[in-house]
């Protein structure tokens, strides 16, 4: 096995705007996003449908598909450069080798006609890996560490594996080429609770053992609370709040974060204390063109919210919040 102690790289997203061509013109799904993924941390990117979280995650891989394109900003990964500027062979090499991506519904993203082992060799050849035996050993080692019988899994077809096993195979594929940036898009959707808890434990363990910088994209605040150090909350293509998970959950500052956390069904406490947010999340076509994107659903709406987009302010406790109504010191 090739053991190279690579330091987990930091990822720095700045001023990123990703727009999609539609009949109504080019509309931004991600708008002016600044986000730092500190080296060695797990960040949970949470948002509802249409928040732009998956588009943001794809831009990390330089994989925004047409009719979408990065119209401004950069995604700089330490030791690689700006993902938004890479193309062709260079981009293809970086994907997998430097940045591992586990796709949404990874449970169904394996080739049903080939065994896992065959797909692993295909991956190795596509990336011109000379030492295929070494690749196999690394894959077995990763599968072992995730509690799977490696030989059995490599000989298996997709349909012979359970959802939780497929998810672990997805993580193995993302890391087997020694990527040190790992992106997981909805890693536990469609998994049962006990399997989900198991996968989240594996994500934490693998992150630590392999020395990664990890981004978990999800609609589920609970998943972020279980695995991540930091939480970034997305709404209407903006990061509205970003900070340490426990602090943000204990004391959310942005009205959307607050509303979202209050809207989570809980196992204890007064059921009437929990409330749905009024209105519905915006879609690409209904995101307001100016002002605050959340104002339609916001209880703290002010005049300035109509016209001026709130900038991300850095708070004393290190988090950033993008809201006109939030002032330093106010809870």
């Amino acid at each position: 096995m090739t053991i190279t102690m690579v330091k987990a790289p930091a990822v720095s997203i700045s001023g990123l705007t990703v727009a999609y061509k539609t009949d109504a013109g080019e509309l931004p799904a991600v708008s002016q996003v600044d986000l730092e993924l500190a080296a060695g941390t797990i960040t949970g990117l949470v948002g509802e449908s249409g928040s732009g979280k998956s588009t943001l995650a794809l831009s990390l891989l330089g994989a925004v598909q047409k009719p979408g394109r990065v119209t401004a900003g950069s995604v700089v990964v330490d030791g690689i450069g700006d993902m938004a500027k890479l193309a062709g062979e260079e981009l293809r090499t970086v994907r997998g080798a430097k940045i591992g991506y586990v796709f949404q519904a990874a449970q169904n993203s394996l080739n049903p006609l080939k065994t896992v082992g065959k797909q692993l060799l295909d991956l190795g050849k596509a990336h011109k890996v000379r030492d295929l035996k070494g690749l196999l050993r690394h894959a077995k080692d990763l599968l072992d560490r995730m509690g799977l019988n490696a030989d059995r899994v490599l000989d298996a077809y997709q349909h012979e594996l359970s959802g939780g096993m497929r998810q672990r195979v997805g993580i193995m594929f993302a890391l087997v080429l020694n990527a040190h940036v790992l992106v997981l898009d909805e890693p536990t959707t469609a998994l049962d609770m006990i399997t989900q808890a198991n996968i989240l434990q594996i994500v934490r363990d693998v992150h630590k053992e392999q020395g990664l910088t990890t981004l978990v994209v999800t609609h589920d605040v609970g998943v972020v609370a279980e695995v991540a150090h930091k939480i970034a909350v997305m709404y209407g293509g903006r990061i509205v709040e970003h900070g340490p998970v426990t602090q943000v959950l204990a004391e959310p500052r942005h009205p959307y974060t607050r509303g979202l956390i209050h809207a989570i069904p809980r196992l204890t406490g007064d059921i009437s204390a929990a409330k749905a947010l009024p209105g519905t999340p915006p879609t690409l076509g209904t995101i307001p063109k100016q002002g605050c994107v959340f104002r339609e659903r916001c209880a703290l709406r002010m005049e300035v919210c109509e016209t001026v987009e709130p900038p991300a302010q850095r708070m004393l406790d290190g988090r950033t919040v993008a809201c006109h109504a939030v002032k330093e010191g106010a809870a």
């Binding site: 609770m193 006990i194 989900q196 808890a197 609970g222 998943v223 609370a225 426990t246 959950l249 196992l267």
Partner: peptide, 13 residues
């Protein structure tokens, strides 16, 4: 008990 234990904890809250 195993099923309920697996439900994510909102650390902080």
């Amino acid at each position: 008990q195993c099923l309920l234990s697996a439900i994510p904890v909102l650390h902080g809250l």
